[in-house]
């Protein structure tokens, strides 16, 4: 929308669009006040099921999944710099088959949320998550992901990503070092290896 004022032209977003967006955000905020329970059941799950045939099938599928875990790029703030550092040559996430950061959620299995999430961004994070095909895993990076971090109690920041989606692994730190992020990725690998696809619809 263009406005002419004082002999100059200004380009602005449409007011109607603004208020529609505002309604979406307010509704989302009101609907997401309770945290999703952490899918942490896999921590106590036994490593290997007994049946030989099914175990082998599970193993092959799990192996193929965790050896090529493609993250979707979702960098929101300072933590994203550490995530990029993890992907670069010194720490080299390619050692784990994870270097293919996808720009489209439809091609990714892992959502690394790196940074501070504001309520204005939260509905679109949820949309990215919903667009990812199953099976999918979520990694919350930094203190902001755990609790809101230094912005906890702020007027615009989501205090913990688990208000928006279920989180598999949290990485503490502000920002976490690349080693910590790699460790969290390995935890996700462990979780995938414990999955029993053939018997039930995947472990939680």
């Amino acid at each position: 929308m263009e406005i002419e004022s004082g002999g100059r032209k200004y380009s602005y977003s449409d007011t109607l669009l603004d208020s529609e967006e505002g309604q979406v955000i307010e509704a989302f905020r009101a609907a997401n006040q309770q945290p999703y329970p952490d899918p942490a059941g896999w921590l106590d799950a036994e490593a290997l099921p007994a049946n030989v045939l099914l175990t082998t099938v599970d193993r092959v599928i799990n192996w193929s999944r965790y050896r090529a875990l493609w993250p979707v790029a979702f960098g929101l703030a300072c933590c994203a710099i550490e995530m990029m550092c993890t992907a670069a040559s010194r720490f080299d996430i390619a050692r784990f088959g994870m270097e293919v950061f996808r720009a489209s959620p439809r091609q990714a299995d892992l959502l690394i949320i790196a940074g501070t999430l504001s309520w204005k961004m939260a509905p679109w994070l949820r949309r990215v998550y919903d667009q990812m095909p199953e099976p999918k895993w979520v990694l919350a990076m930094g203190a902001c992901g755990t609790s809101g971090g230094i912005f906890k109690g702020s007027y615009s920041v989501v205090p913990g990503f688990n208000l928006v989606l279920p989180v598999d692994v949290y990485v503490p730190g502000c920002p976490p070092r690349p080693e910590a992020l790699l460790d969290a990725c390995i935890k996700i690998h462990e979780k995938i290896q414990k999955d029993r696809i053939v018997r039930k619809g995947g472990s939680q």
């Binding site: 200004y10 602005y12 603004d18 505002g22 309604q23 307010e26 309520w119 204005k120 007027y155 615009s156």
Partner: peptide
């Protein structure tokens, strides 16, 4: 020419 919110969304309660 266009006095409206810039960072926060329309409908945000109050001025933080």
């Amino acid at each position: 020419p266009n006095m409206k919110r810039i960072f926060l969304w329309e409908g945000f309660p109050g001025y933080p």
